[in-house]
């Protein structure tokens, strides 16, 4: 018998049995429910520049101090021409709302306006509106804060995109900031928005580190030594939270300890507020592990969005 076969950690069948019934099936349905840019039957709307004559129902939380994110979401009528969401600003009282729900004919436009709020409040509010929508927030690198990171929704729910809300390496600046839900929506949906990370909290979703708004925006650093790059980062009050390098066996190793300053920086990622993760190599050009294709970004668009 092939000796490596004998040390297989787990079989496919065993792997499948680790999940509770329905988990994988439901995940497949959720994935297939995410929007695909350019897919048949899909349309994408820009938030800015929409018709200005419709009456819009604004549902939001008036601010009563910085932490006023209490669950009560008051309904009020917006003025004609008012734009909603983080791109354009509604009336003063709506600015600090946790959630902006704007009615357009048979639809509700849902946009998170305060990504710092307690996710439970959103859930309660969706329930109050009779919508089975779960909204969660994950710590995101700066350019993804307030944007829709993931949406597991039926095709009847459409993403709303806005220009300039986030910046992606390949996708430009058109980013999803909310969803348009039919008023008679009866299904269930799961939305995940990016929120700011707390000090020291690691990002769970990241944009390219050189994107606008990110720690190394506009910086040219690949091929420079760690000493040089650390000094460039220090000028921006950014530190290195993590290093990644390939050891002699071509294994990727993450470490928080300092690496030799003479090593070369081959890449970087956002890590936590004020921190980046640097990929370093003892040699330049970096040694490639021949025999296997070098890992590359798998998707053409780095924006972790449903419209990407």
């Amino acid at each position: 018998m092939n000796p490596v076969t004998r040390i297989s950690p787990i079989s496919d069948a065993q792997a499948g049995m680790l999940t509770t019934p329905g988990t994988l099936t439901d995940l497949g349905h959720q994935i297939a429910a995410t929007a695909v840019l350019g897919a048949p039957g899909r349309s994408h709307r820009r938030l800015a520049g929409r018709g200005a004559t419709r009456r819009k129902l604004i549902i939001g939380v008036p601010a009563a101090g910085a932490l006023a994110v209490a669950g009560l979401i008051a309904a009020s009528l917006g003025s004609p021409g008012q734009k909603v969401g983080p791109v354009a600003i509604g009336p003063a009282r709506a600015q600090a709302a946790v959630l902006s729900v704007t009615r357009h004919g048979g639809y509700l436009d849902v946009i998170v306006t305060n990504p710092l709020a307690d996710a439970r409040k959103y859930r309660e509010e969706f329930a109050r509106l009779g919508l089975n929508i779960t909204l969660t927030l994950v710590p995101a690198s700066p350019s993804l804060v307030g944007t829709l990171v993931y949406a597991a929704t039926p095709s009847s729910i459409q993403p709303i995109t806005a220009v300039g809300k986030c910046w992606t390496g390949g996708g430009g600046s058109v980013c999803p900031v909310g969803v348009r839900v039919p008023l008679d929506f009866k299904g269930s949906a799961q939305l995940t928005f990016g929120r700011p990370a707390r000090p020291g909290e690691r990002y769970e979703t990241t944009a390219p580190v050189t994107a606008k708004g990110e720690a190394m925006h506009g910086m040219t650093f690949v091929g420079k030594t760690a000493t040089v790059v650390i000094s460039m980062l220090a000028a921006r009050h950014v530190t290195v939270g993590d290093y990644w390098f390939q050891n002699a066996r071509c294994e990727g190793v993450n470490t928080t300890r300092s690496m030799p300053g003479s090593w070369y920086v081959t890449g970087a990622n956002p890590w936590a507020p004020g921190q980046v993760s640097l990929q370093v190599s003892k040699t330049w050009p970096a040694r490639t592990c021949l025999g296997v294709a070098t890992p590359v970004r798998p998707a053409p668009s780095p924006s972790p969005s449903p419209a990407a």
Binding site: V138, Y150, D242, N269
Partner: peptide, 9 residues
């Protein structure tokens, strides 16, 4: 290598 694509999915 540090890239994250965490989602509620």
């Amino acid at each position: 290598r540090g890239e994250r694509r965490r989602s509620a999915l």
